[in-house]
Amino acid sequence: MSAALKWMPLVAALALAGCARDGYFDDRRVDYAEAEASAPLVLPDSRDTRRYRDAMPVPEAAGSFASQGDDFEAPPPRALGAGSGVEAGDVARREATGQRWLVVGAEPSAVWSELERFADERGLQVVSRDSSRGVLETDAGRLSVRPGLQPGASEVRCEQAGTPLEGCLRALERRFEARGATASASSLAVQRAPEERMRPLLEQRAGEWRLVIPFDLERTWAELSYQLEADFSVAERRELLEQDADGHRFLVDYLTLSERSEGLLGTLTSLGQASPQRIRLVLEASGPERTVLRAEPADERELSAEDRRELLERVAGLLG
Rank of each mutant, 00 (worst) to 15 (best):
V190P: 10
E203M: 05
E296R: 05
P194T: 06
V252Q: 05
T256W: 01
R199M: 04
G63W: 05
D22M: 12
G266F: 10
E296K: 06
V111S: 14
E114A: 11
R29D: 10
R21V: 07
Y254P: 01
R179Q: 09
T49W: 04
S131R: 15
P44N: 00
V42Q: 09
D27I: 03
R260D: 11
A39Y: 00
L241I: 08
T267G: 02
E114M: 08
L41D: 12
I279Y: 00
A235L: 12
A61N: 10
L10Q: 07
G63S: 03
F118Y: 12
A79C: 09
P194V: 12
G180C: 13
F215I: 02
D45E: 09
S261V: 15
L293A: 07
A20F: 02
V315C: 10
G180R: 08
E284C: 02
A61G: 01
R29G: 06
D307L: 02
A140S: 08
L143I: 08
S286Y: 07
L281I: 07
A230Q: 15
V135T: 10
G123L: 02
W209N: 01
D26M: 13
E300G: 10
E36R: 00
R199V: 06
C168Q: 05
R117M: 15
A62H: 08
S64Q: 12
P40H: 12
A189G: 11
D26L: 13
A316P: 06
L5F: 06
L240P: 13
R142Y: 03
A66C: 06
Q125I: 02
L14E: 11
R301A: 11
Y254I: 03
E223A: 12
S186P: 01
A189M: 01
T267C: 03
Y52A: 09
A4G: 04
Q227F: 03
R294A: 00
R117Y: 15
P76T: 07
R290M: 09
L80Y: 09
V103N: 07
W7P: 10
P200F: 09
F65C: 08
E218I: 11
Q150M: 09
R199H: 07
R94M: 03
P75V: 02
A92R: 08
Q125G: 14
P151T: 06
S270F: 04
R294H: 06
V104I: 03
E173M: 01
E236P: 14
E239G: 07
R146C: 05
V234I: 12
R314A: 14
L201F: 04
L281T: 10
E259L: 13
F176I: 10
R237A: 15
T269W: 09
P77A: 00
Y52H: 06
V91A: 01
R51S: 11
P288Y: 08
P108S: 15
L283Q: 03
S258T: 14
T97N: 07
R93G: 02
P75S: 03
P200M: 05
I213Y: 05
